[in-house]
Design a protein around this nucleic acid. Sequence first.
DNA 1: CTGGGTGCAAAGTGTTTGCACGTTG
DNA 2: CAACGTGCAAACACTTTGCACCCAG
Lengths: 157, 157
Amino acid sequence: MADIENMEYDSLLIRFKDLLKHNNLKYTKQREVVLKTLYNNHQHFTPENLYLFIKEKYPKLNVGIATIYRTLNLLEESGIATSISFGSAGKKFELANKPHHDHLICKCCGLIVEFENSQIESKQEEIAQKNGFKLTGHMMQLYGICTTCQSSNEASS
Amino acid sequence: MADIENMEYDSLLIRFKDLLKHNNLKYTKQREVVLKTLYNNHQHFTPENLYLFIKEKYPKLNVGIATIYRTLNLLEESGIATSISFGSAGKKFELANKPHHDHLICKCCGLIVEFENSQIESKQEEIAQKNGFKLTGHMMQLYGICTTCQSSNEASS
DNA sequence: CTGGGTGCAAAGTGTTTGCACGTTG
DNA sequence: CAACGTGCAAACACTTTGCACCCAG
């Protein structure tokens, strides 16, 4: 936890509190903990993961899973968090404080690698324009087998 | 329904029947109707849409929604159909007889436009390699507002 | 002290499964 | 006539909602 990171967190927190104030919402312990957990653990949480994680780390708080869902939805709607969806397998959330990026997902072990490619982004913009769309967002996920799984699966098949 | 299309359908059907035979599965009226419906209606069906559509068009058949799900899963697993998923909003299926393509989706009216871009595809391959992944597939969806919705929404906001 | 927030449990989704019966090969 | 497929309803997993109490502002 470098100071720089804490600074980042502070500004994130301010942004969150502002958002709450502007919508007559309240800054609660639960909301704080969800934000902090997402921030401190640079990973992709399912609602359930996050719930279990928080339940273990803050037993006193006695959070309910409903609150996790409510908070994640709030964070996503206000652009503080984003989610990637895995078909019927659910959704995973992460903070949206990093620059835009997409995901490379291992079908075998679930490893998620983030990447960014501006050339693809501009192509996408081009495609949207060509079809008369005003682009508002996109979702791109590449599926494959990561290095580790490739080697451990050589024996089989 | 041009003759060419019927020829296409015939070969699709043969492929499907082969698949069934190879797996000791049976060619039933229900499976036939699902395949035919997907073929004749070049659109993206949710399981429920497809169920209602078939129920209306073939009332005699008295299909159950479970069969629709079972058949769609079968078709997808065997590569005859593909699906695009909309997060918690479910999945839509289409036949996989056209060349690979991705989707441009209107967030407003749900319009889906298909497109193909080989430059993006090769970039994706490149990204996967750079990260040590063996690419097996991808999903790319662009979200935006289509021409129609852009003009009809000018009044509001 | 007022209005939004929370936990809980119940209700909703969309999808899958167990079962007895029907159909295919 | 054996084995798979089907419709139905129940079961499921994930998410949302109603409610009584709680807490932030």
